Amino acid sequence: MNIKSQKFRKCAELFGAICGGLLISLPAIPHALAQDSTPKLNPSPSIFSEPPYNRSQAPVPPVPGAKPPRPVPPVEGQVSPMPPGPGAKPPRPVPRDRSQQPSPRAVSTDQPQLLQPRQTPSATIALTNGTVNVRLVNDTAANVTFQVIGDTAPRSLQGKSNVILQGLKAPVTVTFERIDGGQLIVTPQASSEPGSLEVTFKEATNASQGRSALRIERNGSVFLN
C-alpha cells in the first residue's frame, strides 16, 4: 500500500470517530437544556417565611421614582378616632348643667293644696226638722241690705230695727252690708225658742272686724265670713 492510501485511510477513520462522537452527544444536549430551563426551588424558604416557591413569586419591589398612594381623606363631618396613647386616662364625663336638674326641694304644682283647718263655729243651734228661724237686729244708725242666697231678693233693714226670716232650710247663707259702706260687727246667738237664731249688727271701727255673710249648716253650726 502506498503512502497516499495510508493517509487517506487515517483521515477517514478520524472523521468517522468525530462524527460518531457527535451522534452520541446529540441526544444529551436537549436533556441538559431541559434541565437548565426548569426553575429551581428556593433552597432557603425561611427567607420569606413561606413554603418553597419560585423566585418569580417573590414580592415585587416598588419601581424607582414611584409615588406612594395618597391617603383617603375622611368624610366631612366625621372625626377619625385617634387611638389612645400608652398610659392615657379615659376622658372625664361632662357634668350636667345644674340649672336643668330638678331641685330636690321643688314641690309639684299638681299636688292638691293642703286643706285649711276648719274654723270654729261662732254659734250652734238645734234645728227643727232641718229648718231655722233667723231674727236680724240692726243696732246701727245706717240701713243694712240683706239677702237669703237662693231664697229672697236683696232687702233693706233700717237702722234700729229688726226682721224675722222664718223657715229657712239648712244649709243656708245670708249676706248683709251697710249702705253707707261701713263695716258691721255680727254676733249670732241661739235664741230661747227652739230652732231660732238671733243675729245682731253693730258698727265696726276696725275693718278687720267687719263681716258680710253668715252660714248655717245642717248640723246647726253657724259660721261667719
Rank of each mutant, 00 (worst) to 15 (best):
S80T: 06
A58T: 11
Q100G: 13
V63N: 09
G87N: 06
R92C: 10
P74Y: 02
P73H: 02
P61F: 11
R92M: 11
P83A: 11
Q78L: 14
N54A: 06
Q78H: 10
G85I: 00
V79E: 06
P95N: 12
S56L: 03
F48A: 14
V79D: 12
A58W: 11
E50K: 15
E76N: 15
Q57L: 14
N54G: 11
Q100I: 13
E76T: 13
V79R: 08
P71V: 05
R70T: 13
S46N: 15
P64S: 10
P74W: 03
R96G: 10
Q100A: 14
V60H: 08
P95M: 07
P95K: 07
P64E: 08
P81N: 05
K89R: 05
V63R: 06
S46I: 12
G85E: 01
A66W: 05
S80R: 03
P69Q: 12
G77L: 05
P93E: 03
P95V: 06
G65T: 00
S99Q: 10
P74F: 01
K67D: 04
E76D: 15
P69N: 08
V94C: 03
S99G: 08
K67G: 08
V63M: 09
P95G: 02
P61H: 11
G85D: 00
P68G: 06
V94F: 08
